[in-house]
Design a protein around this nucleic acid. Structure first.
Length: 568
RNA sequence: GCAUCUGUAGCUCAGUAGGAUAGAGCAGUGCCCUCCUAAGGCAUGUGCCGGGGGUUCGAUUCCUCUCAGGUGCACCA
């Protein structure tokens, strides 16, 4: 039983009308330390006793008197404030952490249930740029959080590897193929393929026939034309190699790369099913599902030329995944601009009679822009993800050379810290916020940043290396009742809630905020309380605290997808 | 026009399923390395919580209207 439950128990013992659940909901954490550790507001009881809340609080506090495990319980205005016994508190939290180790923040809510996390999903033959960072990092973290909570997750990279654009690419390549271009594509595929794509789009203006040629080649691709398929495979392969370089830097792994093309042969069955269920309507030659009565705009399922669309593919993907994985949840980490699409898509699945439609969730996030406007690949307004990482690593290398030139394995550390800074920055705020990419912000390493947390972690590692004693939970916990130690312990208690919150709301930033605040508390403790001291009892207790912070910071960073250097 | 998201300190953002004096970081200023990593710590100022109305003992938080900005609205993904 934790302290909050204890408070509820004590309170309900006096206020017998109150259920445990109600009491737990009532309990809050006071805004300031000198008001105690837990508080129960008494406004609700004022009516019942026909006395002012302050008087009720006084009476309740008196009735409770003094209780085991609590230093004191007193009223303060309309609140009954509970002050925990700091020694007991320290003992309970640190012992639990000591026993549970890296599982200190987890619960078994997942129970092995299967959860699909679809994220990143870049388009083949197009640059992997700063706009992709959000889905990639948020998705990766959600995947890790769900794993930690005991789910079996399937990380899917739903590659944008199909569609008319490939008709264009194939047609362009066939028109302009030269040995130089082949070599250039092998060497530096994305920019070269993009050049072809851009040129083709430009030439459509003057050669109207190109549009039909592109459509023709896409049709050929769909029909299994050998030549088209081979080219497509080649484009896909060289692009994926590029993407994997970035994924490797981030340490991201996928279980499946089943992208759009994977579902191309599963479309006719979906069309048939929609037809059978009388959901399709003809409209201007196209087939649509009417959704206006659900407050949505109608969705085009099949174009007038007979080919299918995004929604159709996503329906096919969802049904395939349900059959294949029998998921408990199917999570799509995709930007907010696609909200309407996902609302339509979910509604259609619902109309098809599948009750699992609402196990599919769209985890959306805001849009990244650049200082000079929106991202625009064709206008050259792009920032490549790989460049961001490289610059972050460069900057880190400079700092290391300046402050810690003798550090061993500088290159690895520079990578861990530079990339860690990028990850931390991305996962620091609420997903839904739009933001403007800024080099200054990305390359700032002070204050609430990734390097700050990593630095604090490295500090704990250093202390543990120098400790010279075994660390166990057999310590004098009364050593840890000073303000700084106690604040760290209070913070440690909150880890589980932070992880659970991230899980419930699909918001990694709860963990990001949590670990930065834990690092802050630890740094205060570090400055105020010398750890490696002569007095063995003091040293052992403070080392146990340090060890716990070390474990939690490490796990927190791991859940965000960050590396945890032990020296920096 | 309809839908949706956002609006809190100079800047970037938190604010826990309404509660006690609204918090961090950055930027500014001033301290702290004979001391466990100064990528650190301490001190210091800043707020019509976009605006109006409502519900409530109590609203930054809930409802409603309104203003500002972003995004999306059928054969692209």
């Amino acid at each position: 039983m934790d302290f909050k439950e204890k408070v509820a128990e004590i309170f309900t013992a006096v206020e017998s009308d109150l259920s445990m659940d109600d009491a737990l909901q009532l309990i809050e954490i006071p805004p300031s330390q000198d008001m105690g550790d837990y508080a129960v507001p008494c406004f609700k009881f004022a009516k019942k006793y026909r006395k002012s809340p302050a008087v009720v609080a006084t009476e309740i506090a008196e009735k409770i008197g003094s209780v085991d495990l609590f230093e004191k319980i007193e009223c303060n205005g309309p609140y009954v404030n509970f002050f925990v016994d700091k020694t007991h508190f320290a003992e309970r939290i640190l012992k639990q952490a000591y026993i549970e180790r890296e599982n200190f923040g987890s619960t078994d809510v997942g129970q092995g249930k299967i959860v699909i996390v679809e994220f990143s999903s870049p388009n083949i033959a197009k640059p992997f740029h700063i706009g992709h960072i959000r889905s990639t990092l948020i998705g990766n973290s959600i995947n890790k959080i769900y794993k930690y909570m005991g789910y079996n997750t399937v990380a899917i990279n739903h590659l944008g590897d199909y569609g008319t654009q490939f008709g264009m690419l194939i047609s362009a390549y066939k028109k302009w193929e030269t040995p130089e271009i082949v070599e250039a594509i092998e060497k530096d595929p994305i920019p070269e393929l993009l050049k072809l794509y851009v040129r083709y789009n430009q030439e459509i203006e003057t050669h109207p026939g190109y549009k039909d040629e592109a459509r023709y080649w896409f049709k050929e691709l769909e029909n299994g034309n050998q030549e088209a398929h081979k080219l497509w495979e080649w484009f896909r392969e060289v692009s994926l190699k590029e993407f994997n370089r970035v994924y490797d830097m981030f340490g991201i792994k996928f279980d499946s790369y089943a992208g759009e093309s994977f579902y191309s042969d599963k479309m006719p069955a979906i069309l048939d099913e929609l037809e059978d269920k009388c959901l399709l309507k003809d409209s201007e030659g196209a087939k649509i599902v009417e959704l206006s009565e659900y407050g949505l705009t109608d969705a085009v399922i099949q174009k007038s030329d007979g080919s299918t669309l995004y929604v159709t593919r996503d329906i096919a993907a969802a049904t395939y995944r349900k059959r294949t994985y029998d998921f408990y949840k199917n999570i799509y980490v995709v930007g907010a601009p696609q909200k309407l699409h996902f609302d339509q898509w979910r509604k259609i699945i619902d109309l098809m009679g599948y009750d699992w439609a609402y196990d599919c969730v769209h985890i959306m996030f805001g849009t990244v822009s650049l200082e000079d406007g929106a991202l625009a690949t064709r206008k050259g307004r792009v920032v490549f993800l790989e460049d961001v990482l490289k610059k972050a690593i460069e900057k880190t290398t400079e700092i290391i050379n300046e402050r810690n030139p003798n550090l061993e394995d500088k290159e690895t550390v520079a990578k861990q810290v530079g990339i860690g800074a990028v990850i931390f920055q991305e996962l620091f705020n609420n997903r839904i916020k739009d933001y403007m990419f800024s080099w200054d912000k990305t390359l700032s390493f002070e204050g609430e940043t990734g390097p700050y947390v990593q630095y604090t972690y490295a500090r704990t590692c250093s202390l543990l290396r120098k400790a010279g004693t075994d660390i166990d939970d057999n310590v004098d916990y009364s050593v840890l009742t000073d303000k700084e130690s106690f604040n760290v312990i209070r913070k440690l208690e909150g880890f589980k809630a932070a992880v659970l919150g991230s899980h419930d709301k699909y918001e990694p930033f709860f963990i990001t905020r949590y670990i930065v605040s834990l690092a802050q508390e630890f740094n205060r403790f570090y400055h105020e309380c010398p750890i490696l001291v002569e007095d063995e009892e003091v040293k052992k207790a403070r080392l146990l605290l340090t060890k716990t912070v070390n474990t939690v910071l490490k796990k927190g960073m791991e859940l965000l997808g960050m590396e945890t250097p032990e020296k920096m």
